[in-house]
Simulated assay, not measured.
Amino acid sequence: MSTTVTTHRPRPTAQPTTLRARRLPRYAAPLIALAALLVAAGIVYGTGIGGPVLVVVVAALLYLAGLFAAANAVEGRRAARNRTWSALIHSAFVLAVLPLASVVWTLVSKGVERLDGNFFGTSMNNIGARDPNGGAYHAIVGTLEQVGIATLITVPLGILCAIYVVEYGRGRFSFAIRFFVDVMTGIPSIVSGLFVLAFWVLIVSPMVNDGRPGFSGFAAALALSVLMLPTVVRSTEEMLRLVPAPLREGAYALGVPKWKTILRVVLPTALPGIVTGVMLAIARAAGETAPVLLVAGGGAAINVNPFENNQSSLALFVYQQAGDASKYSPARAWTAALTLVALVLVLTIAAKLLARRNRLGR
């Protein structure tokens, strides 16, 4: 009786697999950027074909090409494409931020010269070309009153119009509202000023002003409200459409009326976006010059009554001072521009904080 002996051959040992792919070191990208900047500066300044702007452009192109070549050699083609597109997106972000940073730096550096009590406490009344004093108190008062009145007129009207279009509007009337809102979005500011001038200043106000045209801050507020209305309506409409339908359906299922659902559920949910749209409209209105010049006339004296006599604004003050021949006018113009930007920024932050507080309170 024979027995068969089975022998087991040893299996070949498997080679260890590397789980980590090769990657560029962290210092590679900064080194490539520095090299690209030096090469671009040598090319541009060596040939004398441009200045700093061209150096930045050429350096960006060289950086993208060098980053792709280095990543392709170390990490592979797929990772190289990913790094290149990421760098391109970051470069686009930097290019978008640079103009804003330049504007802010210019405003701050040139606007601090007249940041004093005289600028914020006096007007330009009886200020001559050789007088270094004079301020924008009358323009600040005019801006606050005109924009405030325009906001009080526009915001309720715009929100109610958007609620009708989204919640109730059907058929041709709703389509006509959307169409005219789109048309009003592209209206130049001078057109709104001419409209208020022809209708309110030359037709309506003479009826109660002994036949004289009534230039006033209120007329400027009406012109600004024409510019603000399409922005408020369109932004509110888009925010209301983003409110999820189950929120409405849940309220209806509990027996809540439609008007109360809109008031208690829809509007609080869309409030942050609505506030953003309103602040965009306010920022645009605060920076308009042509409507105020046409229907308010401007002025150097302080006028706290928006319904009588001429009234100025910060935007109009900047325009007038920028064209003045006095050597002290540019400093006033830059400080007024800085004040206008700071005013809009403060209003925006305050509105955002108020909207956030109301939302958390609910």
Rank of each mutant, 00 (worst) to 15 (best):
L294P: 05
I262F: 05
Q311M: 15
T269F: 11
L314V: 08
K260W: 03
N309M: 05
P268C: 10
R264E: 13
T335G: 00
A322G: 08
K258T: 13
L271N: 12
I262W: 04
S235G: 01
L247I: 07
R234V: 00
T339R: 00
L280I: 09
D324S: 15
A337H: 02
T335R: 00
A322K: 06
V232D: 01
D324H: 13
V295H: 07
N310H: 13
V275Y: 04
G297T: 10
V295N: 05
N310C: 10
G287K: 07
V243M: 05
V278P: 03
P246Y: 08
Q311W: 02
A325G: 09
S313D: 02
G299Q: 07
R241L: 13
Q320A: 03
F307H: 14
P244G: 10
G277V: 10
S329G: 01
G273I: 14
Q320H: 05
Y252N: 10
F307L: 15
A281H: 09
A285V: 04
V256Y: 05
P246H: 12
P306Y: 06
G273D: 13
W259L: 13
T261V: 15
T276M: 12
L293N: 04
P268W: 08
I282P: 05
S312C: 00
G273Y: 15
P268L: 11
P330D: 01
L271H: 09
V295C: 07
G287L: 05
S312Y: 00
A286G: 11
T261G: 14
A300C: 00
T339C: 00
A253E: 11
V295D: 07
E238M: 09
V278L: 03
Y328E: 03
V265F: 11
R332Y: 01
L271G: 06
Y319R: 11
V243E: 04
V233M: 04
A296Y: 02
A325L: 09
V243F: 07
L240F: 02
V275Q: 06
A315S: 13
S312D: 04
V278M: 04
V265H: 09
L271A: 12
V304C: 14
T289G: 10
V233N: 05
N309P: 00
V304K: 14
I262T: 11
G297R: 10
A281W: 08
E308P: 01
L293R: 02
V295R: 06
Q320S: 07
Q311E: 12
N305M: 04
T335F: 00
P306H: 09
I262L: 11
S329R: 06
D324Q: 08
I262R: 11
V256W: 07
F307K: 14
A270E: 06
G298P: 04
R234Y: 00
R264A: 14
T335S: 02
L316V: 09
A281C: 10
Q321F: 07
G298T: 07
Q311L: 15
Q320F: 06
I262H: 03
E237G: 12
A337E: 00
S312W: 00
A283Q: 03
G299M: 10
G273V: 14
A331F: 02
L267G: 12
A281G: 08
A336G: 11
A322E: 05
A336M: 03
P330R: 05
S313M: 03
R264I: 01
F317Y: 11
V233E: 02
N303S: 13
P257K: 12
S235P: 00
N305P: 02
A290H: 10
G298M: 09
M239Y: 11
A337T: 02
P246R: 10
